[in-house]
Design a protein around this nucleic acid. Sequence first.
RNA 1: GGUCUCGUGGCCGAGCGGUUAGGCACCGGUCUGCAAAACCGUUUACAGCAGUUCGAAUCUGCUCGAGACCUCCA
Length: 500
Amino acid sequence: MEKENIIGIENKLMLFNTLTHKKELFEPIHSPLVGMYVCGPTVYGDPHLGHARSGITFDIIFRYFQHLGYKVRYVRNITDVGHLENDAEEGEDKVAKKARLERLEPMEIAQYYTNRYHQFMDMLNVKRPSIEPQASGHIIEQIAMIEKILEAGFAYEKNGSIYFNVRKYNTEHHYGKLSGRVIEDLLSTTRSNLASQAEKESPVDFALWKKASSEHIMRWPSPWSEGFPGWHAECTAMSCKYLGHPFDIHGGGMDLLFPHHESEIAQAVAAYHGDPCKYWVHNNMITINGQKMGKSLGNFITLEELFSGQHAGLVQAYSPMTIRFFILQAHYRSTLDFSNEALLSAEKGLQRLMIARHTLTHIHSSSTSSVKTELEEIEKKGYEAMNDDFNTPITIASLFELVRLINLGSESKVSFTEEDKAKAEWIYAEFVDHILGLKDESISDGMTDKVDGLVQMLLDIRSQAKARKDFSTSDLIREELQELGIRVMDGKDGVSWQIN
RNA sequence: GGUCUCGUGGCCGAGCGGUUAGGCACCGGUCUGCAAAACCGUUUACAGCAGUUCGAAUCUGCUCGAGACCUCCA
């Protein structure tokens, strides 16, 4: 947080704005305050790799803004109502459907999966947002927003349901400005044979409020009918409630671009007379065998499966930090292809990065430095990469240059002063801990010291055996430890070990 | 069909006109009683064709291939 160390850089942060389709200089509307809203999960199923990607992407953005010294209000919603299976009238609410299938109260489902989401995001070291509003807790705000849209004349009522009049809106504004959709094309490609379409004046219209059918459990009173809000309503109502209007950044997965975010813009313009936000930021998808990992395709892997290895497609379990590192090794706007091979290499790479930090502490400091300039370059490159639309792969690449330097230092091929060592540790703290949020998973419980002592004792005995060329004893100790999952490594400067 | 994105070495993945990305794997070396690990070093690219340019993975056009959105999805 020491702002003075990065002054001058903070004003050069470029981020890609989906709305303008180019990288723009980031300038908060009310600096040093930053308001960011991100579409969170619909809580009717276990979190999967896709949730990890958007969670981590915006966690990095959140962390980096804070790092630059901004005061960030980060709002990420929980969708627990209004998200229908499809847009048809017979479309069932996702949460309600799950509740019916599991014979539970809908709110039990929502709470259960919200908890699960939190649990797994915590494991991934994703910081909790400043505010996490639930759609069901903001029905009043949504109704108020819908009323404003009605007053503005951009919505109409039909049998107790309220629909947004996209075509009328499009005569005065531009429906499609974010997604690049052209309304005429939409009219010709939207499925219009569904039952609900009959109620709409146009197939491109979307629901703001739906009258609940008799069997629909999740329902609230409104001026128009007992019913529930449309999917897009919550984000506009809640983002503007907590961040004002307009706010700085709206984020989410690329798959939400249309119709969700496009419709959010329309709602905000209609209700509050202006775009909801200044910058739109979208993370790309994770693919598996080149195909999007998605619910409808049934090819997604949950985080629980990933962390436990319990999935037919996984050759082993992968730790949360391996997943985090894997995701950060790709730029957030690129698709990222999932494979065991890629995950395995991420695991090894992360390990190397983390081990070097320990190696650093063992470097004998010298009075002269041969790495000072390089350390400065590494730090500079790291920041420049982050400032260039959060290019974490390059930031990580620069950290591996640091790894190389540290390893050379440990072999006395380059020389570190005390100051250099402090600088290197500083880079680790800044980039690895604070910005990238990578935790060292080898540091754990209170037993660590005792295990250290025990292993060290065995290794001392082994060293004595080796000294008198009693290799059968020394090998026995090595093998027994190996059995326990502790690997013994004879190096130039003595014996080291690690738990596999 | 419409809109859009992308094709980089064995794999993942940066790159946005001229410089080694990086990780993993491979290979060579160092270390070692042996082994493993670790470390150091190094090889293999820009889908194809044509064009612009002194110079193109990077710009333009065409061809081929892959994917996303248009219905719910991060």
